[in-house]
Amino acid sequence: MNTQSDLGWIPHAGIQLRKAGVQFDAIRVDGGHGRVLADHLARMTGGTPGPIVEEANGRRAVYFLVPVGSTSHRTWPAGVTRLTAGPNRISYIPVPALNGSTWPLTWRYRPTAADHLVHTLLLRSALHSPG
């Protein structure tokens, strides 16, 4: 795994919001379905699906960090929220530190390299498959 300095978008402590469209965009899936989807995607990729953040409270959201612009011009099923940037649109994605107190956010799957994000087409495929 790269050091935290190689992944400059990860905070050194706590949680920070990152503006979508700069380093990445995100797909948010709420509830248990997001966790099942994350694990299914991990099986599809040999355990390295890319960075996935999960929330322990509220809507129990799961955030799949995907390449900038990769979610546009595609249909997404109900229950999926795209966090992107564009004309008259700004979204923010919560990102926890790799270590320390970050509750209610944690890494379900930690980032492994600066340029390794969740593959958008694999994510769409996993959303449409039974698991």
Rank of each mutant, 00 (worst) to 15 (best):
T71I: 05
M44F: 08
S91Q: 08
P96D: 02
T81W: 05
R110T: 04
N99P: 01
G58I: 03
S101P: 05
T102G: 12
A38N: 03
G47H: 05
T45Y: 13
R43S: 14
S70N: 11
Y109W: 02
P96Y: 00
V66Q: 12
T71N: 01
P51N: 01
T75K: 05
L41F: 09
I90L: 12
A56C: 05
P96I: 03
P77G: 08
G69I: 10
T81R: 12
E55C: 07
T106S: 00
P87L: 15
R82V: 15
R82S: 12
V80D: 07
P49Y: 01
R110E: 02
P49V: 10
L41Q: 10
S101V: 01
L65N: 10
Y92I: 08
P104M: 09
R108Q: 01
N88Q: 11
G46D: 14
A42K: 06
E55Q: 03
W107V: 01
G100F: 02
N88P: 09
T81L: 05
P94C: 10
D39Y: 05
R89H: 11
T84F: 05
P67Q: 14
V62E: 00
T102I: 13
H40V: 06
L105D: 00
T84Y: 07
P77K: 04
I93G: 01
R82M: 15
T75H: 06
S101Q: 04
R59C: 15
T106Y: 00
Y92H: 15
P77Q: 03
L98S: 14
T45R: 03
S91V: 03
G79Q: 14
G46K: 15
L98K: 07
R59Y: 09
G50E: 08
A61I: 02
A85S: 13
S91A: 12
V95P: 06
P111M: 12
G46Q: 09
N99Y: 10
E55N: 11
M44P: 02
L65G: 06
L65P: 09
T102V: 11
F64V: 03
L41W: 06
N88S: 14
R60A: 05
Y92P: 02
P77S: 08
T71S: 04
P104S: 15
N88I: 14
W103T: 02
L65F: 07
A78M: 03
G69N: 07
T102L: 12
N57V: 13
I90R: 10
V68A: 11
